[in-house]
Every structure is written in C-alpha cells, then in structure tokens.
C-alpha cells in the first residue's frame, strides 16, 4: 500500500513516507555531487529517525550511495573531473582499509570501552579537518585577492570557467614535498596534473580513508576528499569526481557485504535514489560555478556535522 505519508517496505518490514525518502535522497544527492561524499552521516540518522533498525539503515544507505555515486561520477566524467587511474588505485587501498577498520572495531569491542575511544578519536579528527580547511581556504582566498590586486592571475583566468581556474592552495609547498617522496614505484597522474608521486602515498591515503570508513561507518569522504587535495595534490574538482568514482567501487563492495548479512532493503534504496540521482546531477553541475578554494570552504561544516552526531551519541547513548 503506497500513500504519501507511509509506504510498507516488506524486506525490512518498515513503514516510511516515500516523500521523506525522496527529499532526504535529493539533499544527500546535491551534497554528494558537489563535495564527492557519500552522505552517510545524514542518511544513516535520517533513516534511524523514522524507526529503521540500525543494521538496515547502514546497509540501505550504502546501496543508495552506489546509485547516486554512479550518476554523479558519470556527470563529473563528462565534465572532465574524474581520474580513472587514481580512482582504481584508491579503491584497492580503501577496501583494504575498510576491512582493517572493521577488524579494529571488533578488537576494541572485545577489550571494552570501544564507544568512548572511537568517539573521542573521531571528534578530534573531524574538528581538526574543519579547522584546517577553514584556515587553508581563508589563506588561499587572501592569496588570490592579493594576486588579483596586483594584476597577477587575471590574464590567466579571463574567459575561463570557475573550474578551470588554477586551483591554488596555500598548502602547496607541503603537497609538493609529499609528492617528492622517492619511494618506488613512482607513477604519474596526467589527468590530475601530478607528474610524479609514489604509489605508496596513494595507497596509504586511500587506506586511511578506508580505515575510517570501516572504523566509523559510512564512506568517509569527509576525510578522503581533503586528503586527496592536500596530500596528493589533486585539484579540488578532480578530487570530488574521482572520490565519487572510487566510492562506486568501495560502496558496491560494502553493499554486497551488508546485503549477504541481510542488512539491505533495496526498495528503500531505490526510492531514496529517485531523489538522489536528480540531486547528484545538480550538485555535479554546481561545481562548475565555484572555484576550488570556495568548494573547500563550503565543505567545512560536513565534518562538524559528523562531530555533532558523535557527540550526541556519546552523551545520550542513542546511536543516530
């Protein structure tokens, strides 16, 4: 029976409004397309808020992330924002990291006090990412204003879209030093404009992203996207598109893994994806109207939302 207020989903035996699912999907879709994140920090609590069991919320959320990421990555690819080579390498590291993160959680669970330890670690990391990104974006914007004031860069950017403007970062010197670490094998990423970088640096970055994904749940795009920009030196628009491509692979793996444990209600994921698929395309197109530093500045609240959710869980004992 379908009404706008409630629809019965037989697989998870839940009654949820399809309009609610479409709206949530749409909002997450815009965020995903614009920032290259899965959006599980919103989708998980949103599904829990309407009475869905935690295990179904996690698995179903991952399934809808796959669909939305395919749409957004396809759109980003058409805009030239996906580095397939980098995405495939990162997928390997992410899957490995996710497995280790899940095992680490199990280990901590056996030793007790896991919730408190994980919560504190994640809050420190989320707040650090946001603080760092505010400072970096602000510094970069100041740098750009100075350049514009002195006439530099205007000639370079005249007539170009926001996305093709040089994606400057005040953190460039550290990124260059990381790219210069001479650990064999060195590879080049022509699509991203990286002449030479150690394969191990990419694997470590994606492994850390995966580790957080397995450790804290969700896709951990709020950690991977900034690391791609600041550690690997990938231009922001390419980091967004490539992260989405990489999410397709890692979230598909996660969906399959959850589905065989009976944690996925595919019908709910499909309803969410009707909104998410539209939102993701809008988000992807919107990136063309903003330069890299602005996208990074807008990204700042996302890890803070993650921190707020963890704080709420820590104090109330209720998992959102």
């Amino acid at each position: 029976m379908i009404t706008l207020l409630a629809m019965h989903f037989p697989i998870s035996n839940t009654d949820i409004s399809p309009v609610y699912l479409v709206v949530i999907g749409f909002l997450i879709g815009i965020l995903g397309g614009f920032f290259g994140v899965g959006g599980s920090f919103i989708a998980g609590p949103a599904l829990r808020a309407v009475g869905m069991h935690w295990n179904y919320a996690v698995g179903t959320d991952l399934a809808h992330i796959v669909g939305k990421s395919v749409v957004a990555a396809k759109r980003h690819r058409a805009l030239g924002n996906v580095d397939l080579r980098l995405g495939l390498i990162m997928a390997l590291g992410t899957i490995g990291g996710a497995e280790c993160g899940a095992q680490l959680i199990q280990l901590l669970k056996r030793q007790g006090n896991v919730d408190f330890v994980v919560s504190i670690i994640s809050i420190v990391i989320y707040v650090s990412i946001s603080t760092f990104m505010v400072l970096e974006s602000w510094k970069t914007r100041q740098l750009q204003k100075k350049q514009a004031g002195s006439g530099q860069g205007k000639a370079k950017t005249k007539g170009k879209s926001k996305s093709s403007e040089k994606d400057v970062s005040s953190f460039d010197n550290v990124t260059k030093a990381i790219q210069g670490i001479p650990v064999w094998p060195m590879i080049s990423l022509p699509t991203s404009g990286v002449k030479s970088i150690s394969l191990w640096v990419i694997i470590i970055v994606s492994f850390i992203g995966g580790l957080f994904s397995g450790f804290l749940g969700g896709g951990a795009g709020y950690i991977r996207m900034p690391m791609m920009v600041y550690v690997l030196g990938i231009p922001t628009h390419l980091a967004v598109g490539t992260d989405l491509f990489e999410i397709i692979i890692s979230a598909s793996y996660g969906t399959f893994s959850h589905a065989i444990k009976g944690n996925v209600d595919i019908l709910i994921a499909l309803v969410m994806n009707t909104g998410a698929a539209i939102g993701a395309q809008i988000g992807a197109i919107l990136t063309q109207y903003f330069a890299g530093p602005k996208i990074r500045l807008f990204f700042v609240p996302l890890p803070l939302i993650g921190a707020a959710i963890v704080l709420y869980t820590l104090f109330t004992g209720q998992k959102l």
């Binding site: 809808h64 796959v66 395919v70 598909s252 589905a259 595919i266 994806n273 698929a277």
Partner: peptide, 8 residues
C-alpha cells in the same frame, strides 16, 4: 540489489 541500483 547491486544490479538494480546500478541499472537505475
């Protein structure tokens, strides 16, 4: 499930 969501 994966086929349906990617198919969509």
């Amino acid at each position: 499930s994966i086929g349906l969501i990617i198919g969509q």
